[in-house]
Computed example of a mutant assay.
Amino acid sequence: MKQDKTNFFELVYQVVRLIPPGRVSSYGAIAAYLGSKGSARMVGWAMNASHQQTDIPAHRVVNRQGLLSGKHHFSDPQAMQRLLEKEGIAVESDRVKDFDRLFWDPSQQLHLR
């Protein structure tokens, strides 16, 4: 089972690396793209574990309502918002403004295998 989790995490990281700057995706959308629609929480665990790697833009993954639900897993709880704002994404009350417009759905943007 450990190997399966490791492989799933790596697949999550591959998708997250493709989220363009200035856009956001959600845990559930990434899970659905990977064929594990009910595994949004596992995508969240992958994001929590990703902070040890510098090439994974975990700040671009939010919950299905645009909330910065993973912000407490960054070294500084305000880091996620600062990183998004640096990319031109407005955040108000821990929520991405214009979430629907900025949402990047891997199932729509990427060709399935």
Rank of each mutant, 00 (worst) to 15 (best):
K2D: 14
Q3A: 14
K5W: 11
N7A: 15
N7S: 15
F9E: 10
E10C: 08
E10V: 12
L11Y: 09
V12Y: 02
Y13C: 05
V16R: 03
R17A: 13
R17V: 11
R17Q: 14
R17T: 12
L18F: 05
P20V: 13
P21Q: 13
P21W: 03
G22R: 04
G22W: 04
R23F: 00
R23A: 04
V24K: 02
V24Y: 05
V24I: 13
S25H: 02
S26D: 00
A29Y: 04
A29I: 05
A29V: 05
I30W: 03
I30M: 08
A32E: 11
Y33D: 00
L34F: 10
L34Q: 04
G35K: 09
K37I: 08
A40P: 05
R41G: 15
R41M: 13
M42Q: 14
G44P: 00
G44R: 00
G44A: 01
W45F: 13
M47L: 15
N48F: 10
H51N: 12
Q52M: 10
Q53P: 09
T54G: 13
T54D: 15
T54I: 14
D55Y: 10
D55C: 11
I56S: 05
P57C: 08
P57L: 06
P57D: 09
P57Q: 07
A58T: 14
R60G: 02
R60T: 06
V62S: 02
V62M: 04
N63W: 02
N63G: 11
R64Y: 13
R64D: 14
R64M: 12
Q65M: 09
Q65K: 10
Q65D: 06
L67W: 00
L68Q: 02
L68D: 00
L68C: 05
L68N: 01
G70M: 08
K71D: 05
H72L: 09
H72R: 15
H73Q: 01
H73G: 04
F74H: 07
S75D: 15
D76V: 10
P77T: 07
P77E: 07
P77G: 03
Q78P: 05
Q78Y: 11
A79C: 12
A79N: 11
M80H: 00
R82C: 04
L83P: 04
L83V: 03
L83F: 01
L84M: 12
E85G: 02
E85M: 06
K86A: 14
K86F: 07
K86E: 15
E87V: 07
G88Q: 07
I89Q: 01
I89V: 12
A90M: 05
A90P: 03
S93H: 07
S93A: 08
D94P: 02
F99G: 03
F99M: 06
D100N: 01
D100S: 00
L102N: 02
F103W: 01
W104F: 05
P106S: 06
P106N: 09
S107M: 12
L110P: 02
L110V: 06
H111P: 08
H111A: 11
L112P: 07
R113P: 12
R113C: 08
